[in-house]
Amino acid sequence: MTHPHCHAGDPVATLDTPALVVDLDALERNIATLAAFARERKLRLRPHAKMHKSAAVARLQLQAGAVGLCVQKTSEAEALAAAGIDDLYISNEVIDPAKLARVAALARRVKLAIAVDSLLGVQRLAAALRAAGSTVDVFVEIDVGQGRCGVAPEQAGALAAALRAAGLRFAGLQAYQGKAQHLRSPAERTAAIEQAAAAVRTALASLERLGLSCPLVTGAGTGSFVHEAASGLWGELQCGSYAFMDRDYADNERDADAPRFEQALFIKSQVISRGAEHAVLDAGHKSHAIDSGLPRVWRHEWSVQNGGDEHCILRGAGLPPLGETVWLVPGHCDPTVNLHAQLVAVRGGLERGVVEAVWPVDARGCVS
């Protein structure tokens, strides 16, 4: 969705709807909070750009002390590199030779790292890099309980040895426990990361048996990073959603020692139809993702019901009148951002703020 008439200096009240709006004050506080957390513990911070897909947000994170950015897809890396971000880690497996040729070409222009979890992946990556005359840092991904990508921890040493034998540079272990991020209670997340830490120790032992050292363990997300940080094993944090937050993360019970992040991403919508017991908004599935559930109304108790592609239905007491602005908190920030062409950055709050910048979603649609 584009808003061609939106410009810096416009009052937020004049924004067309639906619009994807970033509370810039909250965003900057979130970025500063995690940067300070990492700095105080002497941890590297490499935020995940698959969440915001924006070079403008990436630059704010780099200015606050991030060492670089993570992405999940080759095309995301290409889009952010084209927008000037020059230190990127594809924290995912790339197995297709054509994509690996693109990875190798990109590595000639920016500092690049990538994950592997198979011998075939190692062989194809090595071939692509030789053909292009480029180099990347290579992380061996281990399965720490996610049940998705990654070798069994006890196989990490053998794969690291294989990639070194293929002439690749072993950079460490990728150890991300995605399932832990939305476990609601601190006790559940503690148990999940304790299991992940045991897997990391097993992987480190497999490296040591082959005489290999591990330069870095990287991983952790917004829901669990306090536990990885406390373990003494992880040296780099990959949190992404902390910058914007969403309804699903807000539903987590916060760890007592975790920093507090604010909601910074919103959908501005308005009431376009009223019934006796419901109000209809102009923001449906095309403006907010529903994979983690429907959005929540910001600072109101109205219930939200599915209204289809173009609509959202509110029910409850004291519903807003026709034409009234309603601010929604998306259920899941990452795929919501991917639905929009731009982020409208507002300074001074949602009610009386003004547009400070309009940022393109540089990596929108970059799924390959």
Rank of each mutant, 00 (worst) to 15 (best):
A8S: 14
P11L: 07
V12P: 06
T14E: 14
L34K: 07
E40R: 14
R41Y: 07
K42V: 08
R44I: 03
R46G: 04
P47K: 09
A49D: 13
A49P: 03
H52Q: 14
K53G: 09
A55K: 10
R59N: 14
L60S: 14
A64L: 07
G65V: 06
G65I: 08
A66N: 05
K73I: 00
V94P: 03
D96T: 05
R102Y: 05
R108P: 02
K111I: 09
A128L: 10
S134N: 02
V140K: 01
I142Y: 06
A162V: 00
A166G: 10
A171G: 10
Y176R: 03
Y176Q: 04
G178A: 15
S185C: 06
T190S: 13
T190Y: 05
T190R: 14
R201C: 12
T202W: 08
A203P: 07
L212V: 09
L216C: 13
V217Q: 07
G221D: 11
G223F: 08
F225Y: 15
A229E: 06
E236H: 00
Q238R: 13
G240W: 09
A243N: 02
A256S: 14
V271C: 11
V280E: 15
L281N: 06
A283R: 00
G284Y: 05
H285N: 03
V304P: 01
N306W: 08
N306V: 01
G307V: 05
I313Y: 14
G318E: 10
L322C: 09
G348C: 06
E351S: 05
G353Q: 11
